[in-house]
Design a protein around this nucleic acid. Structure first.
Length: 514
RNA sequence: GCGGAAGUAGCUCAAUUGGUAGAGCUCUAGCCUUCCAAGCUAGAGGUUGCGGGUUCGAGACCCGUCUUCCGCUCCA
């Protein structure tokens, strides 16, 4: 593909729209930013990806079960998880440099500078006096006391402002401290805005107070709060996992790049509960296992890489991403995190319920450690569709647009065509459709020349086309045309089911994982 | 949120300095008959993203707004 990545990405987006994969949300009302709808083909591809993940996780692992937790959860869940506190950043922009800062960070840095000044005074004094009482110096030296008072004032004002949710006061504090933008050097600041990661809504009648609940920003907490339910009712023995797919919602500051970062998106997560001390080996196991799953899609091994996190989130002991080479560069596709016992401990503390596991081998109880695998279904969708789309130049200079989807994931498994629209060919084709549709989503098409029908199916990624001709009426054979090679073979009607089963069923993909 | 670019039929794009909104593909009905986007006939599809303004007249110029793409920023 000689197109620039930027233009190629535009092609992907318009192809998605043109062929019923993805539409912008509420398009007739000018759209809704960073929200997208899946069309008639998109919903099938997405469902197939989800099924493949689910079967690879739940069906192929005897010690993994699934759940489907509600999107609404008790508000305390998000206090326990850290989402309420950790994601309420006050933000401020410098109008000259166009740079955005966290207001709290600006103030903290300012305070740190004053502290530096104090330390310098202390150092100077240390050199000057033989016997030096640092505590005494700090509490009596005029300049140091002045600095310290300033720091205390700033901290007090800042805390009070944050607690009161008074963002104007935060801005005033930045102005009063004469904080300048490190880039532009100016004090030309915008107002401070609070950015909330979580969407909130009200339960019960509208006017009742303090019934605010959140739309979950991750599905994982639904698993953690059900840990005990599943462990007990499923008689699960550690190590075991709980899988879940579902919608999550994040109020991203900038949500862009098509379906890569959306405000409403679907996660596929699996939380694996292990004995403390064994988390590292399980972390490695899932790191390998998940990459193997991705590679099985056949999108090209060089399109994937690991990215180990150096800076870790508050709950994590180790974390890595599996990144994929999207049209706009390598970006996170899946995260594998060693979450320690952080989440279950937090929920124990906030709920007052024991979330422990009695290990019969050791004859003792403990809170299990967790290794998480978390993949974005929409990102996976984008990785697949963007690497599948290609434009080929055929002999004779014609071009054809092909969506080379993994056959097992393709929305429509086969197109069934009568070569011409008479002589009983449509009837036989309809009969084939009636038979195949019990197992697969197939499509009947009799409009236009057969070559055109082949191309139509190529563009939506249908892996096989079955064409009925006059010979079919005599010997019950049809031509089976393969999408990528455009090769045709003559096969018996009675073999169709077996051949499709081999080529396009999820089973064929799942087998590569074992 | 800031800066840049863009928005015309389902898709890809035209439309002279401001002067009747068009083509190809797609789609629908029919003819023809046929293994790789064939041909013919007829038809559908538009308040030029939306709202104001300037003008005798706006797709074009001005203002606002929405959406998308790119860059910055943020990202459990």
């Amino acid at each position: 593909m000689s197109l620039k990545p930027e233009d190629f990405f535009k092609n992907v987006i318009s192809h998605c729209k043109e062929y019923g994969y993805i539409f912008q949300s509420s398009e007739i009302y000018d759209g809704l930013s960073a929200v997208y709808d899946y069309g008639q083909n998109g919903v099938e591809l997405k469902k197939n990806i989800r099924d493949y993940w689910w079967k690879a996780m739940v069906q192929l692992h005897e010690n993994i079960v699934g759940i489907d937790a509600a999107i609404f959860m008790h508000p305390t869940t998000w206090k326990a998880s850290g989402h309420v506190d950790a994601f309420n950043d006050p933000l401020i922009d410098n109008k000259d440099s166009k740079k955005r800062y966290r207001a709290d960070v600006l103030i903290e840095e300012h305070v740190a500078k004053i502290e530096d000044k104090i330390n310098k005074e202390v150092e100077k004094a240390k050199k000057r006096f033989e016997s030096f009482d640092e505590a005494m110096f700090r509490s009596t030296n005029g300049r140091v006391v002045e600095y310290q008072t300033k720091i205390n004032d700033i901290n007090n004002r800042f805390k009070a402002a944050l607690n009161a949710g008074n963002l104007e006061e935060v801005k005033q504090l930045i102005i009063d401290c004469e904080i300048v933008c490190p880039i532009s050097g100016t004090r030309n600041w915008t107002d401070v805005r609070q950015f909330n990661l979580m969407f909130s809504t009200q339960v019960g009648s509208v006017s009742e107070d303090s019934n605010t609940i959140y739309l979950r920003p991750e599905t994982a907490q639904g698993i953690f709060v059900n840990y005990s339910n599943v462990q007990k009712t499923g008689r699960m023995k550690i190590p075991f996992g709980i899988a879940q797919t579902g919608k999550a919602f994040r109020n991203e500051i900038v949500a862009r790049q098509f379906i890569f970062r959306m405000r409403e998106f679907e996660q596929m997560e699996m939380q694996f509960f292990v004995k403390p001390g064994t988390e590292n080996e399980w972390y490695d196991y899932w790191k390998n296992n998940r990459l193997k799953w991705h590679l099985s899609l056949g999108l090209g091994d060089k399109n994937y890489r690991y990215h180990d996190h150096l800076k870790l989130a508050h709950y994590a002991k180790a974390a890595c991403d599996i990144e994929f080479q999207f049209p706009f560069g390598f970006k996170e596709l899946e995260g594998i995190h060693s979450r320690s016992d952080f989440d279950l401990m937090q929920h124990e503390q906030f709920s007052g319920k024991k979330l422990q596991y009695f290990d019969t081998d050791d004859n003792k109880s403990y809170v299990p450690y967790v290794v998480e695998t978390s993949v974005g279904l929409d990102r996976l969708f984008l990785s697949i569709i963007s690497s599948a789309l290609r434009e080929e130049t055929l002999e004779g200079g014609e071009t054809r647009t092909v969506l080379g989807l993994p056959p097992a994931l393709a929305p429509i498994k086969a197109g069934v065509f009568p070569l011409i629209k008479r002589d009983g060919l449509p009837e036989l084709a309809e009969k084939i459709v009636a038979d195949l549709k019990l197992d697969y989503l197939v499509i009947y098409d009799e409009k236009d020349a057969v070559g055109k029908r082949y191309r139509r199916q190529d563009a939506i990624g249908t892996p096989y086309c079955i064409t009925v001709d006059h010979q079919s009426l005599e010997d019950h054979t049809v031509t089976l045309r393969e999408r990528d090679s455009m090769q045709q073979v003559r096969v018996n009607l009675t073999d169709l089911n077996r051949i499709l089963d081999e080529k396009v069923s999820l089973k064929s993909l799942l087998r590569t994982l074992i």
